[in-house]
Simulated scan of single mutants.
Amino acid sequence: MIYKLTAQLELPQELQTNNLGSTLHGVLMELLPTEIVKQLHSASAYSPLRQRLIIKRGSKPRWEIVSLSSELGKILMNCLMDRTSILLKHHQIEVAIGNISVEKIDETALIKDCFSQQVSPRYIKLAIQTPIAFKSKGEYEIFPDLQKFFRSIMLTFDSFFEDYELYDSETLTYILENVKIVDYRMRSTRFHLEGVRIPSFTGELKFRISGPQPMQQLIHLIIQFGELSGVGIKTSLGMGKYTLVEPNN
């Protein structure tokens, strides 16, 4: 079971930035039980905790926390549901927290829903809400590389849901043959993380999907899961969040 917690934060204007993701990760480490924090720090490359601060013009900043583990999801609920504020130690400010909602997504139901669609949209548009980057051979990559994009999400899925397997090299190759970027509005940016500025990109992407219906269904599953898990590096610290928009175009 996947847990998604969403809360509004009453942040001062100067703190309304995606870069606050690292600070908010620190807040969670303070709130979670010590044993859970140790497990998260000693986890493999794939942490079950994903969180980010989403800034949207005209709306209050939204803190989105995703757990790819049922156990952690329940603990996060216990830690956050009754809270009215959080302390940002680095900035020495108490921030009001409100309107916390919880959504539970069953991965089996998600799979069945995607593969039951008789007609899947052939165009997918993504709005990137926090900076995305990939890392290869010690260097950051700031371009929307489709191979790295799909591989990242597929490997994350396989790491937490052992009853299913999305990734193998042949499947990935077939996906790349059937997905093309047909439109984009991109810009490079930097994600600030503990004194480091990570080169990354943001903006919008539009894909066209070809191939048989089962392939289209698989790609929609990967995209929808990635909307929860994030994609690329530092997804626990606030990077890698996108939203699926205009799914029927």
Rank of each mutant, 00 (worst) to 15 (best):
I2M: 02
Y3P: 00
Y3S: 05
K4C: 13
L5C: 04
L5Q: 10
L11K: 02
S22F: 08
T23P: 00
L24M: 06
H25M: 01
L28C: 14
L32A: 08
L32C: 07
K38L: 03
L40D: 09
L40Q: 13
R50Q: 13
R50F: 12
R50N: 15
R52N: 11
K56Y: 04
K56P: 00
G58Y: 11
K60A: 05
P61W: 07
R62W: 11
E64Y: 02
I65C: 08
V66P: 05
V66S: 07
V66T: 15
S69G: 08
S70R: 09
E71C: 07
L76K: 08
M77V: 14
N78D: 11
M81P: 02
T84L: 02
S85P: 00
L87N: 12
L87A: 01
Q92N: 08
Q92I: 06
I93E: 00
A96L: 07
I97N: 01
I97Y: 02
G98P: 00
G98Y: 10
I100L: 10
E103F: 02
E103L: 07
E103M: 03
E103C: 01
T108V: 12
L110E: 12
L110G: 11
I111M: 08
I111P: 03
K112A: 14
K112R: 11
D113R: 15
C114R: 13
C114Y: 12
Q117W: 14
Q118S: 14
Q118R: 15
V119E: 10
S120M: 15
P131A: 04
P131R: 04
F134V: 05
K137T: 07
I142F: 10
I142N: 09
F143T: 14
F143I: 15
K148N: 06
R151L: 10
S152W: 14
I153G: 01
I153F: 04
L155Q: 09
L155R: 13
S159R: 06
F160T: 06
F160R: 08
E162V: 14
Y164F: 15
D168A: 01
T171N: 07
T171V: 11
L176N: 10
V179N: 04
K180Y: 00
T189V: 04
H192R: 05
G195S: 12
V196T: 09
P199H: 12
S200M: 04
S200K: 09
S200G: 08
I209G: 03
I209T: 13
G211A: 03
P212T: 02
Q216S: 05
Q217M: 01
Q217H: 01
H220R: 13
H220G: 09
F225A: 10
F225H: 09
L228E: 11
L228I: 13
G232S: 07
I233V: 12
T235R: 10
G240L: 02
G240Q: 03
K241D: 04
L244V: 14
L244S: 07
L244N: 10
L244W: 13
V245T: 02
V245F: 00
E246F: 04
N248A: 01
